[in-house]
Computed example of a mutant assay.
Amino acid sequence: MANAMMEIHPYRAHDMWVFDDPAVGLVQEPFVFGVPEMIDQATKAIPDAVNGFRLLFSAKPFPGFQHELVWVREEYEGNWYRWAATGEEGWLCPALFKYFETAPKSIYCLMEPRGVGEG
């Protein structure tokens, strides 16, 4: 069973938003199909986000969450989510299942500069 709160550190590489998570075997895992545009918009206020930022996420709301992604549908072994605040949609690939047993109905996110909140 996945933790209630998870953390990754996305960054730009090869003109894409990617992240590494050695604990689940992911290296430069790309965000694709609508999600990069969501990240661009959501990180505008984060200084130097392209070199990495902290992304906390959970299937349950948590204090300080900023964004809610609402499940829309499954397609090609991945899942489409709609950003509740904007209506934009993005596809999360099967790497989602490294963090969740099933696609959650909502994913709650907090994005902040690296180093904030880290021990």
Rank of each mutant, 00 (worst) to 15 (best):
Gly119Lys: 11
Trp71Lys: 10
Gly115Ala: 06
Ala4Ile: 13
Arg54Gln: 06
Leu56Glu: 11
Asn51Ser: 14
Trp91Arg: 04
Gly78Thr: 05
Pro10Glu: 08
Cys109Glu: 09
Arg54Thr: 14
Ala59Gln: 13
Met16Gln: 15
Met111Thr: 10
Leu69Lys: 14
Gly90Asp: 12
Asn79Arg: 08
Val32Gln: 13
Phe65Trp: 09
Thr102Tyr: 00
Ala95Ile: 03
Met6Ile: 01
Gln66Val: 09
Ser58Trp: 01
His67Ala: 07
Trp71Asp: 05
Arg54Asp: 10
Ala59Cys: 06
Pro94Val: 11
Pro30Ile: 09
Leu96Val: 03
His9Arg: 09
Ala85Phe: 00
Pro61Ile: 04
Glu74Arg: 14
Ala103Met: 01
Phe100Lys: 08
Glu68Ala: 15
Tyr11Trp: 11
Ala23Asn: 08
Val70Phe: 00
Gly87Asp: 06
Glu75Ile: 07
Ile39Val: 15
Val24Lys: 08
Val18Cys: 10
Ile46Pro: 01
Tyr99Ile: 02
Ala95Val: 11
Leu26Trp: 07
Ala59Trp: 00
Ser58Thr: 05
Lys44Leu: 15
Pro63Trp: 02
Gln41His: 12
Gln28Thr: 11
Ala49Gln: 07
Val32Ala: 05
Asp15Ser: 14
Ser106Arg: 10
Lys44Gln: 15
Arg114Thr: 11
Leu92Gln: 07
Lys44Asp: 05
Asp21Ala: 06
Asn3Ala: 15
Thr102Asp: 14
Tyr81Ala: 10
Phe100Thr: 06
Trp91Asp: 06
